[in-house]
Design a protein around this nucleic acid. Sequence first.
DNA 1: CTGTTAGCGCTTTCAA
DNA 2: TTGAAAGCGCTAACAG
Lengths: 333, 333
Amino acid sequence: MNKPSVLDVARLAGVGTSTVSRVLNNQSNISAQSREKVLRAVEILGYTPNQDARSLRSGQTGAISVVLPLTGTHFYDTLLRHMHQVLSTQEYDLALFPVLGEQRIRRFREASALPYRADALVIASLDPERMYHGKPPFGKPIVLVDSFHRDYHSVCFDNLAAGQMAARHILKSGLPVVFVDVQENPGEFESPVFRDRREGLLQTLQQHHLEPVLTLKTTFQVEGGRAIAQDLYSLLNEKPHFIVAACDDIAVGLLRQLSEAGFQVGRDFLVCGFDDNPLARESALSTVQQPIAEVGEAAAKLLLRALQGELTHLALQTFHPRWQERSTTTFQH
Amino acid sequence: MNKPSVLDVARLAGVGTSTVSRVLNNQSNISAQSREKVLRAVEILGYTPNQDARSLRSGQTGAISVVLPLTGTHFYDTLLRHMHQVLSTQEYDLALFPVLGEQRIRRFREASALPYRADALVIASLDPERMYHGKPPFGKPIVLVDSFHRDYHSVCFDNLAAGQMAARHILKSGLPVVFVDVQENPGEFESPVFRDRREGLLQTLQQHHLEPVLTLKTTFQVEGGRAIAQDLYSLLNEKPHFIVAACDDIAVGLLRQLSEAGFQVGRDFLVCGFDDNPLARESALSTVQQPIAEVGEAAAKLLLRALQGELTHLALQTFHPRWQERSTTTFQH
DNA sequence: CTGTTAGCGCTTTCAA
DNA sequence: TTGAAAGCGCTAACAG
């Protein structure tokens, strides 16, 4: 037998279809009697509403799509958990759409793509301009997270301030600086995150007439840090340096490789990173912490307001980093 | 102005709505002339089809949902990338639904939940029986990945064989065994993965009249391994042991903490794990590798066949582990 | 408080 | 090869 429809339920309950609809949507003007009958019929038939029809009719899907570069990192995991926590208080389901490669980008430029079958869209860490060559094909609320564009609501980390913050701690040490930047994959978008960190860092250093004695680039994993450690050996043999890496993973790789090569943190070098991911915590790495949880929650709340049409002006929320002092930035005497 | 519909396109093109529909769906019986007119009208109006209406009418969504416990790990990242690679050759979009907490489980039991607005469902690492207290509320193809149930197509890792494989390498060493199992979070489901690894391991050891001299449990992160390392100090001071951990993270935590405490791998202890994640590679940990990529691809292909109705019988595919010999399971002489 | 009815936008017969 | 028209399952306006 076919899936039962509202009509089947209505017939069995001996009421009209609108009564069924009202009961199912918890509307108020319903007698206890009718409600009872409808619910019983629903139960008997094992009726479940067709969501496509519901969406077609009401124009609402109950879905919120999150487009993000990838899953599989602490950053997105944390971000999503916190967004999720806020959004699930309402009746919204969250669907994730990682942009795994160029192929998906092209697909996501089409208005018929799955992410746009939703009531609202979250775009995380991606520049809408570059991703879409213009505007996303989506006419409902959009919130940018970890990314900024003047045409959209945005919730951002202040990466410029993060860079400045690192610079200030470097300056306190009085040591010469080595900066290890992230090597962007050619063909992938340049990340504004690293651009801003770099800018804030170098800017503040310059204001104090300090420039890195050496700048290196490497991939943003632990292995990337390990790989370029040897380029520092001669420098560190000469005198201690402060090494600032553009992310924790690189910093940790550096820390480990240098330690294994006989250099001692706190004596031969100091090192710090950015992010405060679990690896940093584990390795006692001093770092500039990004308030991921706060940003996730703020974005979700913003979205909720946008969905309720309460957001008349373009919102821009910026969250400030926090310095996490651990053991890799103090001299051992 | 409102979003244009097929009717608007049809009017502008001077054709009927069915002609518009046929052009948009690349059907054959269309004159080049009509096609031309329709496409031009589509262009002018910026028309994009309403997917809800399309789904309602055709019963197809073009979506495949993946329900998984969490994102944010190498395992799921790898699995998804490979599934994605296969599925995107067809016109399917992949949507991810991490089950973040008990709240979501309840929601996902409802037939109206977002994951079920799809043409097929992938359930990763979750036992449908426990998750749904019965069957998922979904009448279309379902494929289980990293999980088995006799009522569904399944693509699995042979965790029993993985446990046996570890046992065989332990036996070769002739050392007494310490087994560090994963502590399941109370309230969460017991993972069949760890159950099978444990069973395969202990079973094979027993067949050779060997039993662990000590069994410990801890959480499955690196920190979990570190935390219980001290429980082994006296044992290792006495004589060397082979430590087998139920996953790489724990093994690495153990390896690191024991090394820092002055014990030497290859002399005071040997250690191996399961999974072969990046951390294992980085730490030169011997481990039982799970062929994640193959499983992901196999699952995707199975799904495609199921969608085409080619799958008449229940499929069960099992993939075998591979031993990754690195430096933590050989004695240094 | 309730039932009848008109579409939401599309695909797909059916007849031309 | 094409157009008219039916109807997928639902919600909401309207009339009672």
